[in-house]
């Protein structure tokens, strides 16, 4: 995906109303034209409404009920579950952990993705060498979460490869319990998530880099800008739209990361890696409190809607 800063807006769009004439035929044509975008959007809307909005509305309904799913006749309890959740200490621990996990992951994904993309885009290295490294760099992306969790559990075991390498090279004296010590567990799962997620940024940014016209750089070079200045003055502003979109999506996705955490630490040790996702899962499938679990999900939804609103508004402003 490539983006440039050329201001392209919908203001002069094909569908914009033309000077109206009073004739009914023309008015009909106007109405038809106004419907055109909806025509294009119909398949999307049908899918999203039927398969996403309906279940979400059902979840919102559950969040207002007690004994939902587990009993035949659930009762309406209003916002009780929301109050329970918002006053529960473990919820806020989960929020804090999730923010750390997500924030660090998104920033690291971006930095690593950008660094790798820049290295793979440099003119200093031959095309074939770049192709080899590109292939290696994309590897973490190719595996299902379950296998990523299992692989890293093996590597980070007290008797695993990572500890072996560290002790053999005398970087640490004894084996570190990466995933099972309360001091390191959150960092360890965050690290795994960073490893698994950066290729998404890397490939998108790499594509974005191709889209920056070469003459921008040539002009800058003529002006005497050094590499760092070219990077901050051209590369970053040019990539900004992609970066913002990806960071927003990555943020939303990472807050939901469940399988990776569940299969590596299960939210432990001592609750240090408890995330909103594991917290919600336990409510639903271990305590069978689907009402409370739904309330927790709706809270996440509302926060994301606020984020999405600001994102869309910022985009509008940029246009």
């Amino acid at each position: 995906m490539s983006t440039t800063s050329l201001p392209v807006t919908g203001a002069d769009s094909l569908g914009s109303p033309e000077p109206r004439s009073g004739k009914p035929a023309a008015r009909l044509a106007d109405a038809r034209r106004a419907l055109v975008p909806y025509g294009y959007l119909t398949p999307t809307m049908v899918l999203l409404v039927v398969l996403m909005v309906i279940p979400i509305v059902m979840v919102i309904g559950y969040s207002l009920m007690d004994n939902v799913i587990m009993k035949k006749n659930p009762q309406f309890v209003g916002f009780k579950h929301y109050i329970d959740i918002l006053t529960s200490e473990s919820f806020w621990t989960a929020v804090t952990n999730t923010l750390f996990f997500t924030g660090v992951s998104v920033i690291a994904h971006l930095l690593i993705g950008l660094a790798f993309a820049m290295m793979l885009n440099t003119g200093l290295i031959g095309t074939r060498t770049k192709a080899i490294f590109r292939t290696i760099y994309v590897l973490p992306w190719l595996f299902t979460v379950a296998i990523i969790a299992v692989l890293w559990r093996l590597l980070l075991e007290p008797n695993g490869v990572v500890n072996f390498l560290l002790t053999a090279s005398h970087l640490t004296g004894t084996e570190v319990e990466w995933l099972s010590s309360p001091e390191t567990a959150l960092f360890a799962v965050t690290f795994i998530n960073i490893w698994a997620g950066y290729p998404f940024y890397m490939t998108s940014l790499l594509a974005g880099l191709q889209g920056i016209p070469a003459d921008y750089y040539e002009a800058a070079q003529v002006d005497g800008a050094n590499a760092w200045q070219r990077f901050t003055a051209i590369t970053i502003p040019q990539l900004k739209p992609i970066i913002i979109s990806m960071a927003l999506l990555d943020f939303i996705w990472t807050t939901q990361q469940f399988a990776l955490i569940w299969m590596t630490t299960g939210g432990g040790p001592l609750g240090t890696t408890e995330m909103l996702s594991t917290f919600t899962y336990k409510l639903a499938f271990s305590k069978y409190q689907f009402g409370t679990a739904s309330a927790s999900a709706v809270i996440v939804l509302v926060i994301s809607m606020v984020l999405a609103f600001f994102y869309v508004r910022a985009q509008k402003a940029r246009d």
Partner: peptide
């Protein structure tokens, strides 16, 4: 007790 108890699963126990 073998290290890593807090996140160890039954399957890991058997491997050890």
């Amino acid at each position: 007790i073998a290290k890593g108890s807090f996140t160890m699963k039954e399957q890991d126990k058997v491997n050890e």
